[in-house]
Design a protein around this nucleic acid. Structure first.
Lengths: 136, 136
DNA sequence: TAAATTGATGCAAGTGAGTTGCAAAGTTTA
DNA sequence: TAAACTTTGCAACTCACTTGCATCAATTTA
């Protein structure tokens, strides 16, 4: 497990420090998108700015992607294997108004959207809000 | 024009004060979504908190809707006639990475999205990012 | 009309997530 | 080992948003 995570970092030219491995492991174990705060709480010994920079590092290497779900807390979630964060890799996210969790709906890709003439899509932030299956 | 705007407010049980009419007029004239700051700059004499509360009032009456476009500034735009901000009223938004403006793509409604079992959609925040026709 | 009530406005101050500067600690390279 | 580079932790800052409260305006009631 740890070897695998270590490789994931090395493959992206990120030095696999203890901190980074812990954060990556934590992200891997989640089935939802987590905020910087969530991670802070999970690792009380770690500093917020270190975690912040770790996330930014992961994000720019496309190991994770961020979602603005409307809570005011940016959320982060692992990218799928082979994800390039390009339009064809995009998926919707679901934010539950009851439990306040945000999930990636990775089964469903965002369809091609008919844009006005000359508009070019590069990224997207798609958040559906409502009630999730557990809270229903 | 002003009479029309006044009615729009009255119809929603909002007292049509001078300030509110000015803000509504301003919003009507935009072809893009604007932030609280944009409005502050447009009305130097007005107080930020008044504008803030005006927007919240408009939003809860579904005269306008807000979009988180990833800039860190919440944007506001007029709802279409008869909009109820329900799933069937939803449209995509486009944020240009060059000019940093955010537009409503009202011509195109958000399609029905296949959600996991028991999930219920109530609202959505859909933002496509890229390059707009003018900046291309 | 005057008093009372209700609501809107303006000012100032607070909140809180995100971000940055910088020095200390750790790691790599020559 | 020494020098060079990277990561980490602390503290402080930024900035959008939000709130409390006193004042002011409009509307209703007596």
């Amino acid at each position: 497990m740890n070897k695998k995570l270590e490789h994931k970092l090395k493959d992206n030219s990120i030095k696999p420090t203890a901190m980074r491995l812990l954060v990556l492991k934590f992200l891997t174990e989640q089935n939802k998108a987590v905020s910087l705060q969530d991670i802070e709480l999970a690792f009380e010994r770690a500093d917020k700015s270190t975690l912040f920079r770790t996330l930014k590092t992961f994000e720019s290497s496309k190991i994770i992607h961020s979602i603005e779900d409307g809570t005011g807390h940016l959320k982060y979630a692992l990218c799928l294997e082979g994800c390039n964060c390009s339009p064809i890799d995009l998926h919707y996210h679901f934010h539950c108004n009851v439990c306040k969790e945000t999930f990636c709906l990775t089964e469903l890709n965002v369809p091609t959207i008919e844009l006005p003439k000359n508009f070019e899509m590069q990224q997207a932030n798609m958040v559906i809000k409502g009630i999730c299956g557990t809270c229903k």
